[in-house]
Computed example of a mutant assay.
Amino acid sequence: MVPATFVKLAAVNFAQLLFPDFSLILCGYLLCRYTALNRKVWEPIESLVYFFMFPVLLFYSIVRTPLEWQTATHMMAAGLTLGLTGILLAYSLPRWPWVGRYLDTRLHAASAQVAFRFNSFIVLALVDRVAGPQGMPLVAVLIGVCVPLFNVGAVFPMARHGQHGLWRELVRNPLIIATVSGLLVNMAGLGIPEWLQPTTNRIGQAALALGLMAAGAGMQLGRMAQAKTLATLVLGIKHLLLPVAALLVALAWQLDPTQTVVLLMFSAVPTASSCYVLAARMGYDGPYVAGLVTLSTLLGVVSLTLALGVLLPLR
């Protein structure tokens, strides 16, 4: 049985933990709308974040903690199972009865990623609070196996529906390049030199801040009203169905209590802030995706409480 203190501590800190992300989105929105820092300023910032800063963040997140591949096979399998479940649910939305035929295919291609991706910084910040030091290697395993899968899952529908070659986009995608490079370096037992780690860490922190502010700057909340059904379905998968699926996956793979806590937490955190940047850079409706990122950040409080406060005791 998981100690109740984990759940109580996590429940108290969810809103406090997510407030910085939401406030950065709000700052970007206000700056873009009410100051001279308009869209012309934010477009090159999006390019900087997408092509350099986010890849550094991903690479550092994967390399920083050695992955225990041999001793965490069940965790790897559970992460891949959960990830594929989220991707299949997101991809299947146009085929859902009664609602699927009303969904805009381009909007769906851009926003499907919101349903299964995760904010890695929130995961890394939260894991120690809910699972203790033993949770960090488990999160490293999940990041290592899920980030490549999720990046391919995010790029695939946009490349297929847009004027892009799928393999060309995958090979050239800076997030995928950074992820694969990080995995190879980690598997080789290498790492970032100690003298370079502070610089890399600061670039990663800046990437998170600028990525969230760019999402706020690109957000147009009025767009959300044009596709409310799609927004409800995508966020429903992310913040309701995935936590439930995570509990079932944990039971199926017979995860121990700590592994279960980590998987449930992983399933319930807000979506990745880079969803907006990726959609915008590939020529899709970035403002709509930015709105989804904002709502996901707010709904993270609810889904984390559901996962760790309601579903976890059922185990």
Rank of each mutant, 00 (worst) to 15 (best):
T5G: 06
V7N: 07
L9N: 14
A10C: 09
A10Y: 00
V12P: 00
N13E: 15
N13M: 10
F14L: 14
L17T: 15
L18I: 12
L18Q: 03
F19G: 00
P20V: 08
D21E: 12
S23C: 13
C27P: 01
L30H: 08
L30T: 10
T35W: 10
T35L: 10
A36R: 14
L37Y: 10
R39N: 13
W42C: 05
W42V: 01
E43Y: 06
E46N: 15
E46G: 03
E46K: 13
L48H: 04
L48R: 08
F51C: 11
P55S: 08
P55H: 09
Y60N: 14
S61Q: 10
R64Y: 00
T65Y: 06
E68D: 15
M75Q: 06
A77G: 13
G79C: 10
G79Y: 03
L82Q: 01
G86M: 07
L89F: 10
A90P: 10
S92Q: 09
L93M: 14
W98K: 13
W98M: 13
V99W: 02
V99M: 07
Y102I: 09
L103C: 07
L103Q: 04
L103G: 04
T105R: 14
A109Y: 02
A110P: 09
F116E: 05
R117H: 11
N119W: 04
F121V: 11
F121N: 09
V123S: 14
L124I: 12
A125Y: 09
A125N: 12
L126N: 01
V127Y: 01
A140E: 01
V141P: 00
I143L: 15
G144L: 04
G144R: 03
V145Y: 03
N151K: 07
V152E: 02
A154Y: 05
P157Y: 08
M158N: 01
A159Q: 06
G162E: 09
G165T: 12
G165E: 10
V171S: 12
N173Y: 06
I177P: 01
A178D: 06
G182Q: 05
G182C: 05
N186H: 02
M187K: 09
G189Q: 11
L190T: 03
W195G: 15
W195Y: 11
P198M: 10
T200S: 12
T200E: 02
T200G: 10
N201P: 00
A206S: 15
A206L: 14
L208Y: 00
A209C: 12
L212A: 11
L212I: 11
A214F: 11
A215C: 15
G216E: 08
A217L: 04
M219A: 15
Q220M: 12
G222M: 08
M224N: 02
M224K: 02
M224C: 07
A225H: 12
Q226G: 15
A227G: 10
L230E: 03
L230I: 09
L230Y: 06
T232M: 14
G236S: 09
L241V: 12
V244L: 15
L248M: 14
A250T: 00
W253G: 00
L255K: 02
D256S: 09
Q259G: 00
V261Y: 01
F266H: 00
S267G: 08
S273R: 00
S274M: 13
Y276D: 07
L278V: 14
M282D: 05
M282S: 06
Y284R: 04
G286R: 03
Y288M: 01
G291C: 05
V293F: 06
S296K: 05
L298A: 15
T305L: 13
L308K: 04
L311F: 07
L312G: 02
L314M: 15
L314F: 13
L314V: 14
